[in-house]
């Protein structure tokens, strides 16, 4: 009943077997779903951690895969890549923590520009990225929840518009028009400046 019953070893899932086939397989061999976790958990965790911070990210990641597992029969198997689906679930789970996200975004937006990096990875790029955050974080607070979900799926999870549309369950045309609107909002929030430039660009 516990531990090793019906052992299914999923270490060696071939890369040629796409997510869709894997999910199909997991209908009869539920444990093979763990291979989907092995493939995508790190990525989902990164996304959750960026949005909610490290504490909640672990719970969220676990929850995402449980929700995904329970809903696996409804997965549209014509999509070989499960990432959009997982990100869609992740987005919904994250949205249950809106308050925590607001707190985090708020905190990031107040972070001083010269605040030292908080994580071990202190490459020059990383520090640059951190220094960008307060401005971006402030811009984020101007967006609606739906706009933020979309923007961050595209910007932080690197989903294509098509994948983001899948994840959010909206037509890709809607994604395009929403992005268009939110870009304008962001531009205004950022003051029309290139946030990379600490100095005015022309001067």
């Amino acid at each position: 009943m516990r531990e090793d019953r019906h052992v299914v070893s999923v270490r060696d899932i071939p890369e040629t077997l796409d997510d869709s086939a894997l999910i199909g397989h997991s209908l009869s061999e539920p444990e093979t779903f763990a291979a989907l976790f092995d493939r995508h958990a790190d990525e989902i965790h990164r996304y959750a951690a960026r949005r909610l911070g490290p504490e909640l990210a672990e719970d969220v990641t676990a929850e995402v895969f449980l929700v995904a597992f329970r809903g696996r029969a409804r997965y549209d198997r014509s999509w070989p890549d499960a990432r959009p689906w997982l990100y869609g679930i992740a987005t919904r789970v994250v949205s249950q923590h809106r308050r925590a996200e607001r707190r985090r975004t708020h905190a990031l937006s107040r972070m001083s520009v010269d605040r030292p990096a908080t994580f071990d990875d202190r490459s020059a790029d990383r520090v640059t990225a951190e220094q960008l955050q307060p401005r971006l974080a402030r811009a984020l607070t101007r967006l609606s929840a739906a706009e933020r979900d979309l923007l961050l799926l595209v910007a932080w999870a690197d989903l294509t518009y098509e994948d983001a549309a899948l994840a959010l369950g909206v037509p890709v045309g809607t994604v395009r028009s929403r992005l268009h609107r939110l870009r304008a909002k962001v531009r205004r929030a950022l003051g029309g400046n290139d946030p990379f430039a600490e100095e005015p660009q022309h001067g």
Binding site: H45, R46, Y47, A49, R50, P54, A57, L108, A117, T118, F119, D121, R126, A129, E130, L132, Q133, R135, L136, L151, L152, V154, A155, W156, D158, L179, L182, R183, V186, R187, L190, D194, P195, F196
Partner: peptide, 13 residues
């Protein structure tokens, strides 16, 4: 604007 967010993504632990 989106690229700015992409490049400014917070580090993930």
């Amino acid at each position: 604007e989106i690229r700015q967010f992409a490049e400014g993504r917070p580090p993930a632990p």
